[in-house]
């Protein structure tokens, strides 16, 4: 996802015929993505978000090059101040673990958890929202009651419960975050489907005998997806915040360096060594900020009329 706009714009246009012709479609998509990129580029805040995001991705990618070795190993004398020792430029925590190494390796965990949890929650949301919005009636009623039930339970409490029951390995945490955050995408997809299902191209496809599943996923879904992709940035930011909150409370996977966990452990030495919790805190802040800024930039680029 180097250019976040391409993933949005490369969606097929509303097909004139049920079998879209491939060649001109790609050409159109490219011009569209170019236009989107120009609009996105004009937005200075969105560009700042993109730069921050690329920085976090680079940190994750280069973690083993810049700070090789296990981030949880002892790498210096405990509680070294930042900018005093060359081998631990950002200082060490109370166990002598290098903070810079923890931040770089933690970027991997935060991004991985963010991406996978977002994919899971969007996938659940798309399926439930699409089926509810397309079929309507009783199916819609039943699925919406389930959605409301999930919205009624405080999501962080449900996340804690799932982790308490199924354990706090990294896989479980990712799935649990996905399970507690699919409701908003589901409502969004449902609304899009309800407005799209009566359109002519859908009727045309139905008349040609295209199956319901095919209409849902191949005809309507590509048209319903752009706002969901923008919303994915919000889900991603929330997933990262939820994971770091879990890790902060000491309920995360202890086998991986995590920013939340670093803050949680830094809390014990807050009085004497504030940098142990402030440095990872700034890392989370900037990462989440990058997603909000990019999401907003994308939103403005997709709906230029909404602004001014």
């Amino acid at each position: 996802m180097t250019h976040p706009d391409t993933s949005v714009a490369s969606r097929p246009l509303p097909p004139a015929s049920p079998a879209p012709i491939a060649l001109p479609d790609i050409g159109l998509a490219q011009t569209r993505s170019l236009v989107l990129w120009r609009r996105f580029r004009r937005n200075r805040a969105a560009l700042l978000g993109l730069i921050l995001f690329v920085a976090v991705v680079l940190m994750a990618a280069l973690a083993d090059v810049v700070t090789p070795g296990d981030p949880l190993r002892i790498a210096g004398s405990p509680l070294t101040d930042p900018l005093t020792v060359a081998s631990n430029p950002w200082g060490t925590d109370q166990l002598g673990r290098d903070i810079m190494s923890g931040i770089f390796h933690g970027a991997r965990i935060s991004l991985a958890i963010g991406v996978v949890a977002t994919v899971i929650s969007i996938a659940i949301g798309v399926v439930i929202g699409a089926v509810a919005g397309y079929f309507g009636g009783r199916i819609d009623g039943a699925l919406m009651r389930v959605t409301e039930a999930f919205q009624t339970i405080p999501s962080f409490v449900l996340l804690l419960t799932l982790v308490a029951i199924f354990g706090s390995s990294i896989e479980i945490i990712v799935i649990a975050i996905g399970i507690v955050s699919w409701t908003a995408p589901a409502r969004m997809v449902r609304a899009e489907f309800m407005s799209l299902r009566r359109r002519e191209f859908v009727d045309a496809a139905r008349n040609l005998g295209v199956s319901d599943m095919s209409i849902i996923f191949r005809e309507i879904l590509p048209n319903a997806l752009p706002p969901v992709v923008v919303f994915a940035s919000v889900v991603m930011a929330n997933s990262i915040l939820m994971e770091s909150a879990l890790a902060f409370l000491g309920l995360g996977d202890p086998n991986y360096a995590s920013w939340g966990n670093m803050i949680g452990q830094g809390r014990a030495v807050l009085r004497t060594a504030w940098f142990c919790s402030v440095i990872p805190g700034i890392a989370i802040l900037l990462t989440v900020l990058s997603f909000s800024l990019m999401g907003e930039g994308l939103n403005d680029a997709l709906n230029p009329r909404q602004k001014r």
Binding site: S244, A245, I263, G264, G281, L289, S292
Partner: peptide, 22 residues
């Protein structure tokens, strides 16, 4: 507003404790 939104509540709590209590 954007900074407030991106600030994890536990991090903010620790900052507040650091400034106003410690």
């Amino acid at each position: 507003g954007l900074v407030f939104y991106a600030m994890p509540s536990f991090f903010l709590s620790l900052l507040l404790i650091l400034i106003f209590s410690v």
